[in-house]
Amino acid sequence: MKPHPDFENIDVPQVFSLADYHLKILTKADLDEDYAAVMNSAAVLQGLFDPQWPVGMTRDEDLTDLEWHHREFTARRSFAWVIRDAAGGYLGCAYLAPDIGTRGRGAAVWWFTDTPGRMAHLSAFGPLYEHWLRQMLPETYQLDLHSNAHL
């Protein structure tokens, strides 16, 4: 698989920190935590990616998704990270996906689990993530930003 043209010459890190948030490439090693987090947060995730997701998602389907995310990341086609707190707790995920078939445009999406601190995390993380992305990406890159703050 060839890299997306927007990312041929950009070194997107697999691991990095944004203040108290620690991001690491999302892989099948995260399956148990990811599946629990997604299914326990379905009420605040439904509609973020698809009108029905994650309702009805099976553990095997999540494993397939995680393997796909890992393959896409290593091929430099799209990027997905798990977001953890300083203690290593699973907080949510962040994604960067260039538009397929075009250049200079993509989407950044992030979500946090359905916990009492979710809105505070979304408010704190969003500006950090956007700033980091804008520093990494070309100045003219058009970036659509989405989170589960509205859900």
Rank of each mutant, 00 (worst) to 15 (best):
R76Q: 10
D60M: 10
F79Y: 11
E130W: 04
A43Y: 00
T113N: 15
N148M: 08
N40V: 05
A29M: 04
A36V: 03
D32P: 02
W53L: 01
W81F: 10
G101D: 03
E61Q: 15
T102Q: 10
A86Y: 02
T27E: 06
L143Q: 09
G88T: 10
A42R: 13
F7T: 10
E8L: 07
R134C: 09
E67P: 00
L133H: 06
V38S: 01
T58C: 03
T64E: 09
H69L: 04
W111D: 05
H69D: 11
H4E: 12
W132C: 00
W110T: 02
A94D: 08
A108W: 06
L133T: 06
V82M: 06
R77T: 12
F125D: 14
H70G: 07
P116V: 14
L145F: 08
G104W: 08
L45K: 01
M119V: 12
P5N: 10
L31I: 07
N9D: 11
G106T: 08
D65M: 15
L133Y: 05
N148E: 07
A124C: 00
E130F: 03
L128H: 11
A149R: 07
R76H: 15
L137S: 05
L26K: 05
A107G: 10
F7G: 07
R71G: 09
S147F: 10
P13I: 05
N148H: 12
G47N: 04
N148C: 07
E61A: 12
R84H: 14
A19C: 06
H69R: 05
M39D: 11
D65K: 08
Q14V: 01
P138T: 08
W68P: 00
G101W: 03
P98M: 08
A107R: 13
N40D: 14
I100V: 10
A75S: 14
G88Q: 04
L45Y: 01
I10P: 03
V12A: 06
G101L: 09
D32M: 04
A43T: 12
M1K: 04
H4A: 09
P5L: 08
R71E: 11
H22C: 11
E72Y: 06
G117I: 01
D30M: 02
G56Q: 09
F49C: 06
L31C: 04
L66W: 14
I83W: 02
R71F: 15
A87V: 00
L137R: 12
D99C: 14
P98D: 12
R59H: 15
K24M: 03
E67L: 14
L128R: 13
E130L: 13
H146M: 09
T140M: 03
H22A: 02
W68N: 06
